[in-house]
């Protein structure tokens, strides 16, 4: 039985890669960009779900860690000429002037940097709980943004960085997404994952069972920040332009929306909702423009689609409090058992 599931997983993975290949060939550049965004939001959603959903730490600092990842990898991938062009008001710090690395090492450094900052922030912040933790992490995320606005010789301040090499393609974004999904499944199904979920369920009992709360919370927070950094770097090299204003609270909100809609504490839920939300976000752009309903003309209101998302969020919270999937996961057993039940009824 177990082998059967493994084979099913591998087959569907291969099918998915073939599908990606076909989409990569047939889609136009706009559609491919959405496809890339989907993959990146899968990474980001899962990283926030690890912290918020599985460990039960209400963190709102994701945009900050993404900013760290985005800027780190931007600094490491830009060519010296590009740096000179970007930093025209104030030259970049000399050590970084001539450094240029390929994408993969830059991506890793971006993740490690975000993870390191996450680790350093975690020590003081994780002594807080619930809403206090949320406020503190939100504060730190804003601090990171403000620091980036003011360190002109490192980040080029409010001018942002332009013309970044657009390394992120379907294989990078979805490769990272699939890698993150596999990592999360292995983590959550293992002993450490159970310990994290125990902390979410009941801290006092978890500690009484010998789980070092502080250590495990830090582990979770650091891994989450690492993945956020990687996601941020992927995003930077998809858009080609970054500036501090990009990493405002709204970005964290978008990821939180994905996590809550998909189910707090569900890997498959996050994957599904990351794709659905990203596609809808583009699809609903129509609402932002001018609408002609025949008898009445509504002039465009920018941000109208966010209203739809807020309404959707409220609807989900009201009727499916735990998101689409709750803490449940989509498993092969689920399908196989259904089929069995169906054939039983039929037979």
């Amino acid at each position: 039985m177990k082998d059967k599931r493994k084979i099913l997983t591998i087959i569907s993975l291969i099918l998915f890669v073939i599908l990606l290949f076909i989409m990569n060939r047939t889609f136009d550049s706009y559609e491919i960009r959405i496809l890339n965004l989907c993959g990146i939001y899968v990474v980001l959603g899962l990283s926030l779900n690890l912290i918020n959903g599985f460990t039960g730490l209400f963190s709102l600092g994701h945009a900050g860690f993404m900013a760290i990842g985005a800027y780190t990898s931007a600094i490491f991938t830009m060519s010296p000429e590009l740096k000179q062009m970007n930093y025209y008001l104030k030259p970049i710090i000399p050590i970084f002037k001539n450094i240029q690395l390929p994408f993969l090492p830059s991506l890793l450094i971006a993740g490690l940097m975000a993870g390191l900052i996450g680790f350093l922030i975690a020590a003081p912040v994780l002594r807080l709980k619930d809403d206090y933790l949320a406020i503190a992490t939100l504060g730190f995320s804003e601090i990171i943004r403000v620091v980036f606005t003011n360190t002109q010789s490192l980040t080029n301040g409010a001018l942002g960085l332009k013309g970044l090499p657009k390394y992120t393609n379907v294989w990078w974004s979805w490769g990272m997404a699939i890698g993150t999904v596999i990592f999360m499944v292995l983590l959550i199904k293992g002993s450490y994952g159970r310990a994290l979920m125990a902390i979410r369920e009941d801290e006092i009992a978890a500690e009484a069972m010998g789980i070092d709360l502080f250590r495990h919370k830090i582990i979770s927070f650091t891994i989450g920040s690492f993945l956020a950094g990687v996601g941020g770097a992927l995003l930077a090299h998809l858009l080609g332009t970054i500036d501090p204003l990009m990493f405002r609270f709204l970005l964290t909100f978008n990821i939180l929306l994905i996590v809550v809609l998909g189910g707090i504490g569900s890997i498959t839920g996050t994957v599904i909702s990351a794709v659905v939300v990203t596609v809808l976000m583009e699809f609903l752009r129509v609402l932002d423009g001018t609408m002609d309903l025949g008898f009445i003309r509504i002039s465009g209101i920018p941000g109208m689609r966010m209203v739809v998302f807020s309404a959707l969020l409220m609807f989900v919270i009201l009727f499916y409090q735990r998101g689409i999937m709750g803490t449940k996961e989509f498993t092969w057993d689920w399908i196989l058992n259904r089929k069995k039940k169906y054939t039983q009824i039929k037979g």
């Binding site: 002993s191 159970r194 310990a195 979920m197 125990a198 369920e201 009941d202 006092i204 009992a205 978890a206 009484a208 069972m209 010998g210 789980i211 803490t327």
Partner: peptide
């Protein structure tokens, strides 16, 4: 104080 949303087996495994 059980881990309410974990399975019975997982509750023991966590320990």
């Amino acid at each position: 104080r059980l881990f309410k949303e974990l399975s019975v087996l997982d509750n023991v495994l966590v320990a």
